[in-house]
Amino acid sequence: MRLIALISALLAPLVSAFELPANSSQCIVGIAEGWNSSNVTLTVYEKRKGKWAATGAPWTGRLGKNGLAWGLGLHPNPKEATLKKEGDMRSPAGVYDLGGAWGYDKSIQKNAKLPYRQITSRDLWVEDPQSPSYNRNILLDREPSTPWEKKQQMKQNDYPQSLKLFISHNAPPRVVPNGGSSIFFHIWRGEGSRATAGCTTMQEGHLRRLIAGVDPARRPVYVLLPKAEYDVRRAEWKLP
């Protein structure tokens, strides 16, 4: 019995190698039917008295055209896992902190502590894996002039991109070249008839309510997984 107890004690740190941050009490959960699904069901949870509870009914969204691949976030990736790459048209599976909100409007409804930047023509988000500024926002001191700068512009007169919330996949300060960039929540296309290049999209009203409810003081995270993976990892990772 002592030997069994000793082995259990030694293995415990390995079995519980990852779980949601202890200070996180707000979680957006996205569940896809499988690794190749571009459809997702989204639910917001909040922790109350140590237990997760949904704050409302779930809603539907869209993911990458080719489904999901493990991304670079808070979670550990399985050995030999297929990881997200730039241009693979897959959304990053895993657990992610949320960054600030971005949009075309001068102001939006949001928590006072959530950063918001009104996007201008001088705002770039670099999707070029060869650039030292890969997956980062750059603010030019002049209007974009080169083809490269214009390609990286955040404001493209594209309404679905007019409001977005950053999902911290492959985010600074540890950015992996070609690991995937520019992953956001934003407005869906074609009333949900079109998949994405890797972002999570939804109806505008749901996005605005999501952003308005995000409270940075509660360490909000996004959990995106295929259903089978979620079921396997739910208890170990202490997911909602």
Rank of each mutant, 00 (worst) to 15 (best):
G50C: 13
V44Q: 05
F166P: 00
A217Q: 10
N178Y: 14
K151V: 11
R2G: 12
K106M: 11
A69T: 08
F185L: 04
P129H: 10
S193D: 12
S182P: 09
C199K: 01
Y222Q: 05
A228Y: 11
P147T: 11
A101E: 01
Q109R: 12
P172A: 15
G205V: 10
T43G: 06
V175F: 08
P147W: 02
S91G: 03
I167H: 03
K151G: 13
Q26R: 05
L163M: 10
P21H: 01
L98C: 00
I31M: 01
G64P: 07
L140S: 09
N111T: 05
S91D: 06
K227D: 14
G50R: 07
G67R: 00
P216H: 01
V95G: 05
T196E: 01
N66S: 12
E143A: 14
A93M: 06
D123R: 00
Q203T: 11
A112C: 02
S38Q: 03
G61P: 08
P160G: 07
S181D: 08
C199F: 00
E204K: 15
R208W: 07
L114C: 06
G198M: 02
A5C: 05
S91R: 01
E191D: 15
S8N: 13
D88H: 04
P173Q: 12
C27P: 06
L6E: 13
G190V: 04
S107T: 15
P129G: 13
P220E: 07
K164V: 06
A53D: 14
K238R: 15
M1L: 09
I138Y: 09
Q161A: 15
A57Y: 11
H75I: 03
L14K: 00
I28D: 10
V126H: 03
K51A: 13
L68W: 00
K227N: 07
E86K: 13
Y134Q: 04
K47Y: 13
M1H: 09
P226M: 01
L224D: 03
N39H: 07
M1T: 09
N23D: 15
R234T: 09
Y116H: 06
P129K: 09
R117I: 12
G61C: 02
L63V: 01
R90S: 02
L163Q: 02
L124P: 04
V214D: 07
N36M: 02
T196D: 05
E236R: 15
A69K: 02
N135T: 09
A17Y: 04
L11D: 06
N135W: 04
S145G: 08
R219G: 10
G61N: 08
S8W: 12
K85I: 09
S168D: 08
K49E: 15
L42G: 00
D231A: 11
C199W: 00
K227S: 14
H186P: 02
S182R: 12
P21L: 09
